[in-house]
């Protein structure tokens, strides 16, 4: 049974959820992990990007927040974004970086950008079934 304190599940179905998800994750990392201000900004920005993608493209989904433990003893933050939306047809295409004049309302920068902010990033997407994104950031200084 998951320890309620070290694992939380946040629904993402309204625009307000995108905003409140950041607050919940901010509180979670303040309570459990030792991140620098820059690392914290990476986390909150990734939450914003990926939760917004769920809201914009899938309509609704959820974010599971938990502590990650590596075999070497590192601790970190694990974010799992999950939706039952239309899925991404071509992940490589969606993740391509685009020059600034091509910044349209699109998932590209958010998706590829979020990957760059993570230590580990995995994405699985099946058309008409949904998308699952795992985002992990390790502590640099143990707490």
């Amino acid at each position: 049974m998951p320890d309620k304190n070290t694992e939380i599940e946040i629904p993402i179905s309204t625009e307000e959820h995108v905003i409140s998800a950041r607050g919940e994750v901010r509180n979670f990392i303040a309570e459990h992990l030792n991140f620098s201000p820059l690392e914290r900004m990476h986390v909150l920005t990734a939450v914003s990007e990926l939760a917004r993608n769920i809201h914009n493209y899938a309509g609704s989904g959820k974010l599971q927040v938990s502590l990650a433990n590596s075999p070497s003893g590192k601790r970190g933050l694990k974010l799992v974004f999950q939706d039952n939306g239309p899925g991404i047809r071509d992940i490589d295409e969606a993740m391509k970086e685009r020059p600034v004049h091509q910044y349209q309302k699109g998932m590209g920068v958010g998706l590829s950008g979020s990957k760059k902010l993570a230590d580990e990033f995995h994405i699985v997407s099946v058309l008409d079934q949904g998308t699952l994104i795992t985002w992990i950031k390790w502590e640099r200084q143990p707490s």
Binding site: M41, E97, G113, K116, L117
Partner: peptide
């Protein structure tokens, strides 16, 4: 922090 993060994202 914001500037660095956006730059690292490629923006």
């Amino acid at each position: 922090e914001v500037a660095l993060t956006l730059t690292q994202m490629g923006l």
